[in-house]
C-alpha cells in the first residue's frame, strides 16, 4: 500500500474584494509516495507546497481531485492517529511550556500518563529543548518554536510524517539535528514527506523528490537524475603551472581563468578533466582541486522559470 496517494489534486483560492478572481495554487497534482520513503517536495516560494500539505491535512478542501493517506481519505480522523504534521512557520499556545503543550497533544492521542511522560522527555532531548522544557513558549525564539513543532509532530510515533519547511528558522547546527531526526525516522521505517527549497538538506536525505513550480509538478524522481541532465563539467584548480604547459593544455579546455598564482579550468566531460589533470601534473603543476559543476536547485528553478 502506498503511504500517500494524490490524484489530480487542484486548489483555487479566491482573491480580490469586489470581483473574486480564482488563483490556481495547485494544478492537477498526481503522485504516490511509497511506505518507508523519504520524499522531498521542492519548489520556489509560491509553488504550491504549503497548499498541498494543507490539503493533505484536510485544513483546506480541494477544488478538484482527491488524496489518500495510508489508504484512508484525508478527512478520516482515525487515520490521523498515525500521522504527524509540522505546519509552515508553526506557532503554538504561548501560555504553555513545551512540556505542557506536548502533554496536551499527547492526551489528544490518548497516550497514557507514564508512557507520555517518558516520551516527552525523550523527544525534548532529541530536539534539543530539554533545558527549556519549563519555559513558556512566549519566551522562545523562532528556531526553538520550530523544534517544539517537530517534537509535537512526532509525539505519537507516526507512520507518516509531513513536515512543511522543517529547516526554516534553524541555524546550521539545528539543521543538522533535524537531518538526524529525519534519518532516524527512516531507520524506524516511517515515511517522511517534507517540503523544502534548501538543496543540501534535500540531497542528503531524500530517496525521491518532486519539483513544483506555480502549482504544477515539473519533475519527479531521484534528485541527482533530475539535476544531472542540466549541467555537466568539472572545475579544475591548478597551481604552479608553467606557461608552456598551460599553452599545451589550452586546446583541451572549455575555459581558462588565471587568478593570481592559480589557474581555474573548466572541462566539458570527466574524461577530458582526467586528461587535463594528468598532463598538467606530469608537467610539474600542482593539483589543488577537482569539482563537478552541478546546477543548484536555485539555478534549476531559475532556468525553469525563464522557460515558462
Amino acid at each position: 500500500m502506498a503511504a500517500i496517494e494524490i490524484e489530480h489534486l487542484t486548489k483555487d483560492f479566491y482573491a480580490g474584494f469586489w470581483r473574486k478572481r480564482p488563483i490556481r495554487a495547485l494544478d492537477g497534482l498526481s503522485l504516490r509516495v511509497e511506505a518507508g520513503e523519504i520524499f522531498g517536495f521542492l519548489g520556489p516560494n509560491g509553488a504550491g507546497k504549503t497548499t498541498t500539505l494543507k490539503l493533505l491535512m484536510n485544513l483546506i478542501r480541494p477544488t478538484a481531485g482527491s488524496a489518500r493517506i495510508l489508504g484512508q481519505p484525508v478527512d478520516s480522523v482515525s487515520m490521523r492517529r498515525n500521522i504527524g504534521y509540522l505546519p509552515e512557520n508553526p506557532y503554538f499556545y504561548d501560555h504553555l511550556t513545551p512540556e505542557e503543550l506536548l502533554t496536551y497533544i499527547g492526551t489528544l492521542f490518548g497516550i497514557r500518563q507514564p508512557v507520555l511522560r517518558k516520551k516527552i522527555l525523550e523527544l525534548l532531548e532529541t530536539v534539543g529543548l530539554a533545558e527549556a522544557r519549563k519555559l513558556q513558549l512566549r519566551k522562545f525564539s523562532k528556531g526553538m518554536v520550530q523544534r517544539v513543532g517537530i517534537a509535537q509532530a512526532l509525539i505519537n510515533d507516526p507512520e507518516v510524517v509531513f513536515l512543511d519547511e522543517p529547516m526554516s528558522g534553524l541555524d546550521p547546527l539545528g539543521r543538522r539535528e533535524v537531518r538526524l531526526v529525519i534519518s532516524s525516522l527512516r531507520t524506524r521505517g516511517a515515511t517522511v514527506f517534507f517540503s523544502s527549497h534548501i538543496l543540501p538538506d534535500v540531497e542528503a536525505l531524500c530517496d525521491r523528490v518532486a519539483i513544483m513550480n506555480r502549482g504544477k509538478l515539473l519533475e519527479l524522481g531521484a534528485l541527482l537524475d533530475i539535476l544531472k541532465v542540466k549541467i555537466q563539467g568539472h572545475e579544475i584548480i591548478l597551481a604552479h603551472v608553467q606557461p608552456a604547459v598551460l599553452e599545451a593544455l589550452r586546446p583541451m579546455c572549455e575555459e581558462i581563468t588565471l587568478m593570481s598564482d592559480r589557474v581555474h579550468i573548466r572541462a566539458a566531460t570527466s574524461r577530458q578533466a582526467g586528461a587535463i589533470v594528468s598532463q598538467a601534473v606530469s608537467g610539474g603543476a600542482e593539483l589543488v582541486s577537482v569539482n563537478p559543476i552541478r546546477a543548484s536547485l536555485e539555478e534549476y528553478f531559475f532556468q525553469e522559470v525563464q522557460k515558462s
Partner: peptide, 13 residues
C-alpha cells in the same frame, strides 16, 4: 495565531 493548524491535524473532530 495559526495554533489551529497543528491541532486540527490531530485525531480530533
Amino acid at each position: 495565531k495559526r495554533t489551529v493548524y497543528a491541532l486540527l491535524a490531530k485525531p480530533i473532530h
